[in-house]
Design a protein around this nucleic acid. Sequence first.
DNA 1: CGAGTTCTTGACAGTGATCAAGCGACGTGG
DNA 2: CCACGTCGCTTGATCACTGTCAAGAACTCG
Lengths: 219, 219
Amino acid sequence: MPIGFAPEDMMKLDGIVKNRRRIKQGDLLFSEGDPFTSLYAIRTGFFKTSVSSEDGREQVTGFQMAGEIVGLDGIVNDRHNCNAVALEDADVCIMPFSNVEELSREFPALQRHVHKIMSREIVRENTVMMLLGNMRAEERLAAFLLNLVQRLHARGFSKSEVMLRMTREEIGSYLGMKLETVSRTFSKFGDEGIIEVKQRYVRIIQPDALKKIFNPQVC
Amino acid sequence: MPIGFAPEDMMKLDGIVKNRRRIKQGDLLFSEGDPFTSLYAIRTGFFKTSVSSEDGREQVTGFQMAGEIVGLDGIVNDRHNCNAVALEDADVCIMPFSNVEELSREFPALQRHVHKIMSREIVRENTVMMLLGNMRAEERLAAFLLNLVQRLHARGFSKSEVMLRMTREEIGSYLGMKLETVSRTFSKFGDEGIIEVKQRYVRIIQPDALKKIFNPQVC
DNA sequence: CGAGTTCTTGACAGTGATCAAGCGACGTGG
DNA sequence: CCACGTCGCTTGATCACTGTCAAGAACTCG
């Protein structure tokens, strides 16, 4: 929610949230083809979104955490275009999109906010395209780890320790590599002393080394 | 522009377009870091958009043709996040984003239209992520060709013949492969009688064969 | 017509995929 | 509380797809 609204406006803006929904780990918030009615603001928990090709291959399109919005993909066709799965027990605010649009017409700041959220998603996907199209396995994983801890740190968590919520296979799907390659690359970073890995636990020992891998010319 | 507006509304909606701009082949409509003020509706011509990594690698993020909108990436940070280059002489409508937002508040149909355009872009990028993350070179190129002719056909052009506006390198950048691989894959499709290729000219002889390559399980 | 760009094709190399086996962690039920 | 089964992770060996390097051909444009 953007800040800087008058109290009476805040009252109205509360109307954007119809109600809450709890999603248990492993359950779907929505899936491809579901009628689109609402956006969802993640209050707690962790999600992955994915699309699947007709022959069953899955592509993870993103990982979302508290404060982020899922469901934007549904607006074009009035049907969701991807799956959103909770990777841990989660709690979301349901925001009927018609409410969002109605209030956006009334509050320019909200309108701007919605536009920025959508634009941010477009820019994020551009970055992923760069990763998938131009980067090698090590660069992709380094970028992934840096992005993850940066977002967690912005939420008050450690900037050096992460407990991953997703499997190697899901990381690999997001980054366009196989789970074995993800595992090997984790091990390689570990051998080099850049990170410490123990299953889902990752500690970043040398963030600069990761940045250098991601961005080779900055030395 | 969406349809179904009353004549007097159309007058107002005309205000969304500040003016026109002609871009010559090879010139930039905007580039990374430029202040964001406007969206651009392509009237004629053909564009590519791209982002570049800090060490200079380019990733083509899309090819846009008449009727499509570029500039959505600029909304988040009030700066453009990608480059838009004309691949042929082009003519665009400049739509100052503040006008778009103002009129969106007044006309729900326009508001919905804008939201759909942004959502469509998100969904398109999801598809590209699937291509880059899961598909092999032949599948990517088949999907690319099918998408291109489908869009051209929707604009009244042939659904079997294309004069490509981009180089092998640009196709490769978009699809995450090297120009040599693009060239070889074109040649392979040609040898198999699926398409006819002569430099930038491509004729699709067996669209079903392309669809089958793109989507192996549908036989 | 000529210079430069783009495209094609060949030979070889390397990154990451595939196949396979074993280990470790976690959860459930006895 | 421990045993066992399942799932996820790691690691090794091999292979294949695509990248890299190189040379020449075809096309474009001044």
